[in-house]
Structure formats: structure tokens, C-alpha cells
């Protein structure tokens, strides 16, 4: 079976798509710089959870998409909450969901298509990171959809994630 991997669309393209579609959900993903002997960029899953923990939308799954024989998929289960709620039922890689890992720093991710079908309601942005020979950490940021006004909400991690900021605009 031929499997194609495309990186997440460039931000400009996504932002443009969002502008056409309407509401966007933006995430500033903070990956901490760690002083460790052996550093690998973390695997990170971002998704939107309903109040009952079911998955309303997968946003991005950042992992070693370039490894041969899809080796990188072996560790997807380490994002264990995402794996349970969604990952284990998916056939990765998935175009537009699978993306390459990101190094230390702040990364702006903009989603529009993936949230276009979100029904109005209460949700949580879930961000789960797992690092090879490192730890695992999960953050959540509650929000209401669609946004009534501009919202910026954030959560900060202690180990594998720095600050994760959610930005919504009506």
C-alpha cells in the first residue's frame, strides 16, 4: 500500500484557508529547551476533546514521519491518552494530520478545516507530549466554541511542554 506523508500545510496557506472558512483555532505550542545528555524532539498530539473525553477533532500529530518503514509509528502509543482516545483507531500517517516533530521554541499552529465541523459547545484543547528517553506530559485548555469574543487562554507544563496558548477569534 502506498502511503503519502505530507507535512502540515505552511502556516500562510492554512491562515489563508481559515480566513476564507471563518473561525480558526490557533495554538502557540511551546517546546522547552532541555539540558539533557540525549535529546530527541518530542512527539506531540493536539486534539479537541468533548467533556466526556471523546475526541471532537484531531488537530495534529507530530512525530518522526520521515523514518523508514514508518518506524516512528512504534512510539505513537506513548502519547497514551491520545492513543486511547483516538490514535489506536486511526491508520497513520494521515494527510494533514501527521506532521514532523518540532524542536525547542514557540510554534504557531493554525487550524481551520479541522475545526470547521465543531458543533457549538464546551471543549478542551488537549496537548500531549512524549519524548524518547524522556518523559510525557499532557496539558488542557478549556474553551467554548464558537468563540464569542477574542480569547487567549494558556496552560504551562513542567517537563515536556512549555506554555501552550490557545488563541480564538470570533
Amino acid at each position: 500500500m502506498l502511503k503519502r506523508v505530507t507535512r502540515l500545510l505552511p502556516l500562510s496557506a492554512l491562515a489563508l484557508a481559515g480566513a476564507v472558512q471563518g473561525q480558526t483555532l490557533e495554538v502557540d505550542l511551546g517546546i522547552p529547551r532541555l539540558q539533557v545528555a540525549e535529546y530527541h524532539k518530542p512527539y506531540v498530539a493536539l486534539w479537541v476533546a468533548r467533556e466526556d473525553n471523546s475526541v471532537a477533532a484531531n488537530l495534529a500529530v507530530l512525530y518522526d514521519v520521515e523514518l523508514k518503514d514508518e518506524e516512528g509509528e512504534k512510539w505513537l502509543k506513548d502519547m497514551r491518552q491520545w492513543w486511547r482516545r483516538s490514535g489506536r483507531s486511526l491508520d497513520m500517517p494521515i494527510d494533514g494530520l501527521s506532521g514532523a516533530t518540532k524542536g525547542p521554541g514557540e510554534h504557531r499552529l493554525v487550524f481551520s478545516d479541522r475545526v470547521a465541523d465543531l458543533a457549538p459547545g464546551e471543549y478542551r484543547l488537549m496537548v500531549e507530549a512524549a519524548r524518547e528517553v524522556g518523559g510525557r506530559e499532557m496539558l488542557e485548555v478549556p474553551f467554548q466554541w464558537p468563540p464569542q469574543k477574542t480569547l487567549e487562554a494558556a496552560a504551562s507544563g513542567d517537563e515536556e511542554l512549555a506554555t501552550v496558548k490557545l488563541i480564538l477569534a470570533p
Partner: peptide
Amino acid sequence: TVLSSDDP
């Protein structure tokens, strides 16, 4: 007991 990838 919980594994990912196509051929674990």
C-alpha cells in the same frame, strides 16, 4: 500490552 505501528 498496548502497541502502535503497522507491524509491532
